[in-house]
């Protein structure tokens, strides 16, 4: 799935630059960053309702491709600057976490592709 396809499926707004043809192979939905850090996934997108700079740093540490903030949550300008420094693509969707994860799952983005370290 590309970022463009994800954006359309989630009615999401793109908040950073970046190549929207970038492919995503797996996904993770969580507000607990240590849970996110526990399992490395390949070319993953993070879906979260948590808004603070640690979300960007966590995704960066995990070599994730993109972050989707659910429930129309918007990162601060500082967070967007931090994301752009690490080539992270940021989106915001009006959908809730459960629905956003479900829509991506039924459209082929499974949670697998785990590399675990």
């Amino acid at each position: 799935m590309t970022i463009t396809e994800l954006q359309q499926l989630l009615d999401a707004e793109l908040l950073t630059g970046g190549d929207t043809n970038t492919r995503i192979l797996s996904a993770c939905g969580s507000d607990m960053m240590s849970d996110v850090l526990a399992y490395v996934k390949n070319r993953a997108v993070l879906l979260t309702g948590l808004v603070n700079p640690q979300v960007i740093r966590t995704a960066h540490m995990m070599d994730m491709v993109a972050i989707v903030f659910v429930r129309n949550k918007k990162p601060t300008a500082d967070m967007i600057a931090l994301a752009e420094q690490s080539n992270m693509i940021i989106l915001s969707t009006p959908k809730r976490m459960y629905e956003a994860c479900g829509v991506l799952y039924v459209n082929g983005l499974k949670g697998d592709g785990e590399l675990n370290a």
């Binding site: 507000d31 607990m32 960053m33 240590s34 849970d35 850090l37 526990a38 948590l50 603070n52 640690q54 979300v55 966590t58």
Partner: peptide, 9 residues
């Protein structure tokens, strides 16, 4: 509430 402290560190 900031996303840490889950006892996973």
């Amino acid at each position: 509430s900031l996303g840490f402290g889950a006892g996973m560190g």
